[in-house]
């Protein structure tokens, strides 16, 4: 039991010191919601590429027949 409490304590304090280091993250981009635009753009590019690959696949299949 003591061990568990000690580990828990260690965990909590280590997290606390971690937060104090103040490492700069893109919190503004997230809170303003503009990150969703980036996600949407990347997703669009990727899905279009995926569809393109499928079309290529189908064309090759046609040629094989």
């Amino acid at each position: 039991m003591k061990k568990i409490i000690a580990i828990l304590l260690l965990f909590i304090t280590s997290n606390y010191t971690f937060a104090q280091n103040q490492i700069e993250m893109a919190a503004d981009l997230r809170s303003s919601g503009k990150i969703y635009v980036v996600v949407l753009v990347l997703l669009t590019i990727f899905i279009v590429l995926g569809v393109f690959l499928f079309m290529l696949d189908r064309r090759i299949k046609k040629l094989e027949k």
Partner: peptide
């Protein structure tokens, strides 16, 4: 696609 969404958010 899921890794793009979760990876960024």
């Amino acid at each position: 696609a899921a890794s793009i969404v979760v990876g960024l958010l």
